[in-house]
Design a binder for these strands. Structure first.
Lengths: 160, 160
DNA sequence: CGGGAATAGTTATGTCCCATAATGATGGAA
DNA sequence: TTCCATCATTATGGGACATAACTATTCCCG
């Protein structure tokens, strides 16, 4: 291989200072700001945990089943705001990964009761501190107090 | 048609009080809260403005071109965090709607300079107060001060 | 009891947004 | 002039979300 230039330095032009756009009309819109923020967090999530086959949706299933064992999947879907048809593949994959069990409720044979396997619990407990750290790192422009305030306001925004 | 029952009253069972799930493990995760909040705002956006063929992405184009006429589309894409390939159909549809013009930059014939038509400007000016009102209505659980704080913190979260 | 309606999960399907790779046209720098 | 960067575009795939229709089960009520 030839001795190439170090990558950081611009090879040719210095990109003649493109004048920045005026973003102010969108900065008052909570919808736009939410989209930007979520894109950042999700990109970072996929970058850090996508290799391990973990997505935000799957992690949210782990978290809720860890705190709520033996819940039927329709009630999990409603808590996560995921439509029942979209839960099917999600849970089937996680079951195939050995993270949870779907067992028929003996008292109501229509319902599937969900619970984490030992592997699912272990994965949840391993991931949680890493994910919390990642989220705080994404919010590094905020002080801890501001971050806590943001969490509180976002929680207040959505219906209980 | 037969004289059916009024819809509001439950026909048969009173839904025997399903015990609520414990959501607390997710309430500390900014990623989950952002997803819930964005889903609310976007659902309301589509409910209120979808009929008119207006999506959040299209409105954001209107807003930025209103404040930044004659901007090349690559720089618009980068400001909105939309990849250039995904801008093509978006702008083509808006051009077909008569909301904007794409004209070749005489000084750089690779670039398309974008600007709103009179109809695009009029639509932007008509929509903006309605959308701001809708967003504040979605956030009705927050005081005006809390809403302003939320906007400020979200803006701080994303890179300038 | 027996039949109709609600519940629970699933299948099939479509849409929307986002992403990468490859192409063609143009411009700039050496 | 030649090489490489830039700009827009096409083709394509993936992921999250939605609705409609189907099956199986259970409940209610006459």
């Amino acid at each position: 291989m030839t001795t190439t230039l170090p990558e950081a330095t611009p090879r040719r032009r210095a990109t003649p200072a493109p004048p920045p756009l005026n973003l102010s009309p969108l900065m008052g819109h909570v919808g736009f700001l939410l989209r930007l923020a979520q894109q950042q967090v999700f990109d970072e999530f996929h970058r850090g945990f996508g290799q391990a086959g973990i997505t935000p949706a799957r992690y949210s299933v782990l978290a809720l089943l860890h705190a709520n064992p033996d819940v039927p999947q329709a009630r999990l879907a409603e808590a996560l705001r995921i439509k029942p048809p979209n839960m099917v593949a999600l849970l089937a994959e996680m079951e195939a990964q050995g993270l949870l069990d779907r067992r028929v409720d003996a008292a109501n044979r229509r319902a599937n009761l969900l619970r984490l396997t030992a592997a699912g619990r272990a994965l949840y407990e391993k991931l949680t501190p890493e994910i919390l750290a990642m989220e705080q790192q994404v919010a590094h422009r905020l002080t801890p107090t501001q971050y806590a305030t943001l969490i509180k306001l976002l929680a207040k925004l959505s219906p209980p």
